[in-house]
Design a protein around this nucleic acid. Structure first.
Lengths: 247, 247
DNA sequence: CGTCAGCTTGAAGGTGCTCAATAACCGTGG
DNA sequence: CCACGGTTATTGAGCACCTTCAAGCTGACG
């Protein structure tokens, strides 16, 4: 259960310097915003704006100089790489309240598209970079996220390089199950798939057809239940984890 | 052309505070050491020691609490991940003067083994972490390296997920050619492969046999020349790059 | 009710794997 | 110097898995 907004807001009530837009923000105390001082928040919010994107809409065009960075407020973002002939690979998924953008570099080498409906709070690259230079805490926070993303990328390299199709699909479902609803103690999970089949295929380095076949195989094995193509129930998370090959 | 040692050393001659062991070090002005003040270098060097490793020797056992970090002085290090049943994937290659170790985390989730003969300068995890906390510059440098590694990991995910076997092998050769001898203007390259076939296979998510077959295919196509299994000549780097599929 | 996007299912084919034999390389010691 | 064993790499034949191509299905929305 998410913490009711009340407790979060009470903290800020005592600090009138916190910008109005931030006070009610879902991400106010998470992600990068959590480390900022009221003055820094003010500076940032002055240049910040909210945007929404619908599935498959581009947040950053690959190869384009992205002049804005941001934080995901809700939804799932896919990071993609393209080959000359159209082959595509999803190289990362990002969830709220992740930071979006690659600091200290002109060109982004990955594209970013909304996978689901997405809300972001974005600000100019230069604003956040200035802030980073002046706030070691913020850089540390971003460094931590980068390290986390690197760990995840390497986990996925193992999946891409060495797992079979059915292990890949199971690993994917397990990944989503553990990311959508971060804290859950019970062995069962229930969620909506944030990706359509084509995206899953691009994430796993497979074709749509193979993904589909492996899903029905997992369904027939009783490891997952799927309804309306998107709603998933996992009766036993541990069993799903094992289907993804024990690392 | 590398800068002659003379100019490098002259800087230190005027600064007698720089530790003796560091003065003649190949990595003194590169990698993380480059940002450190003489005092910081002294602190670090007091706890530092040099080690050498031969091929396949473990620098860090996966899952083990690595209590030392370090810098690569020479050689190539492979970062590996293992699946329960023995399947292996190399998730990164590191060259001098890269930093070795994952800060701010108890457990390393990857193993590190020497690919070639390797020299490292290592120090206790806690020493460098203290230093990081006190030196924003150092954290920035490490953050930059982490970002670089993340970019590389994602590049490789595209290779693992979407390229054919022959494209994979070509991509690998191109990667090595451009990393072994970083600055080279001419279109031709000549180098020793730092990895044996089994390692290449683990890096590419293939089998030894497939790697071998694709290498002879590239050889017969005149894209590379190979002698003694390890010495490679690439007459036209651009052609090799294209054989790896234009991204 | 028709259309369109997304998903599933089937049959055929190819790429890369498995298993197995041969060949090249390298250090050691006769 | 060559013979030798061990490690590393190449090559071949058959097969499995995943892809390709093609058809049908489902649900949302006009």
């Amino acid at each position: 259960m998410p913490i009711p907004g009340e407790t979060l807001q009470r903290q800020d009530i005592h600090n009138s310097q916190v910008p109005v837009v931030c006070r009610a923000c879902e991400a106010r105390h998470r992600g990068i915003c959590g480390t900022l001082t009221p003055e820094q928040l003010t500076l940032l919010s002055r240049h910040a704006s909210r945007q929404t994107f619908s599935p498959d809409q581009e947040l950053i065009a690959s190869g384009t100089s992205a002049h804005r960075h941001g934080a995901i407020l809700s939804g799932v973002v896919k990071l993609t790489k393209l080959l000359g002939d159209g082959r595509q690979q999803i190289v990362g998924l990002q969830f709220a309240p992740d930071f979006l953008g690659r600091p200290f570099k002109r060109q982004s080498e990955v594209g970013a598209q909304a996978a689901t409906d997405v809300k972001v709070c974005s600000f100019p690259k230069s604003t956040i970079e200035d802030l980073i230079r002046r706030s070691p805490d913020l850089e540390h926070r971003l460094h931590e996220q980068t390290l986390k993303e690197l760990d995840e990328a390497r986990d996925w390299m193992l999946t891409l390089g060495r797992k079979s199709a059915s292990e890949k699909v199971a690993s994917f479902l397990y990944l989503i199950a553990t990311h959508i609803d971060p804290e859950r103690a019970d062995p069962t999970a229930r969620f909506e798939l944030p990706l359509k089949r084509a995206d899953i295929a691009d994430f796993l380095g497979l074709t749509i057809e193979t993904v589909s076949r492996q899903l029905t195989k997992l369904r027939k094995a009783g490891i997952v239940e799927i309804e309306n193509n998107r709603s998933v129930v996992v009766p036993d998370l541990e069993r799903l984890r094992q289907a993804g090959a024990s690392g």
